[in-house]
Simulated assay, not measured.
Amino acid sequence: MKTLLYVVVASLFVSACVPPAYCSKKPVGKARREDIPYIKCQVCEKLAKQLYHQVQKKQAEIAPKKISEYQIIEIAENVCNLKKAEGDWILQIDIVENEDRLELVEQDSEGQCNSECKTIEQACQEVIGYSDTDVAEYLYKSKPDIDSLLKYFCKDLTEACSTKPPPVPKDRAPGEPFVPKSAKEAEMDRLLKSMEGMPGAPGMKMYSREDLMNMNNFGEGGDDEDEEEDDEAGFPSKLGKVLREKESGSDWKQKLRKGISDGAMTLKKHANRVSNQLRQWWRGKKAGTTKKGQKTGKSEL
């Protein structure tokens, strides 16, 4: 019951302390599904290379231990998901019109995610489909080189490159230009992504990078008679202050995580207080019911 109360209180706190204007995010472009047939094979080839390199990277990180099949499956499940770190490669791809073809051109840095980014993600998900465990098993057991993986994955398993892509219609509307992120923006997005699902950060998904950086009241707090309410109200403000302190060279990542941890402790205290009040109320009600039953029994005698 205490866990349930904690979740409820956390949800109420997040919704109460963040003004509605701060929860709004920039509109995200939608995938252009009609473009997928023109880029499907290229997406498959880049996806296969990502699977190969990410498995190699994971193996190097955990050496001398050997990578497990489960770890490879986890990579395969996340590699087409922009919400996961394994899907960050999609942000570096630009769709370029070249006569009657669409080409995927890799850029030097990550770009803002628009409809092209979403289209590549959608194409990637369609390519891998339910084959994530199959390709993971192949990588684990066969340990192929990159050329063998490309052939197996894009021609044999998914057949994404079994036929030539159709020509692009002449009246196709051109896509958006590639807009690179600054190094600071990319780092901020990776940090927010890494904190999704983190205990003590129940409402981080409500904040975009722009929300956190642009809140005017970050770091500002008023006097309040209730100290715990001050802590709760100041939680998002502390986050914004920490984010801005990056410019001064402070360890902002550590401070940000500490701010989240402190906020979690405040929420836990509040949940415990509510839980105690409910227990006392229930005991009083139960005691009253027992006394009433005893009086009824005596009157019947």
Rank of each mutant, 00 (worst) to 15 (best):
P166H: 02
G87N: 07
C23H: 09
Y130P: 02
K184C: 00
G203F: 01
L102Q: 00
S208L: 06
C117L: 13
S131R: 06
D230L: 05
R257E: 11
H53N: 08
V18F: 05
R257P: 05
K205N: 08
P177V: 04
E232H: 00
L12K: 09
M206Q: 13
M198V: 14
S248F: 10
I72M: 13
E247D: 11
G240W: 07
S299V: 06
D108S: 10
P19R: 03
P64S: 08
K184G: 00
D132S: 14
C124Y: 15
S11F: 14
E99I: 05
K25V: 10
N276C: 06
T289V: 05
C124H: 13
E220G: 02
D88L: 11
R257N: 09
V79H: 08
V8D: 11
V168W: 00
E137A: 12
M215A: 14
A287R: 13
A136G: 05
R33P: 00
K258V: 10
K57Y: 09
K66D: 04
G87Y: 12
E225K: 00
E110I: 04
V7Y: 11
E159Y: 13
K255G: 02
P199R: 03
G203C: 07
E99L: 08
P180D: 04
K118I: 04
P165N: 12
K84E: 14
N81P: 02
P202C: 03
N217A: 15
I90L: 11
R33L: 09
H53Q: 15
A10Y: 04
C113W: 10
K66M: 01
P19M: 01
K141P: 00
K269T: 02
G129P: 05
W281A: 15
I39N: 06
M206P: 03
I93P: 05
I93N: 03
K84Y: 15
T290R: 00
Q92G: 13
K25M: 09
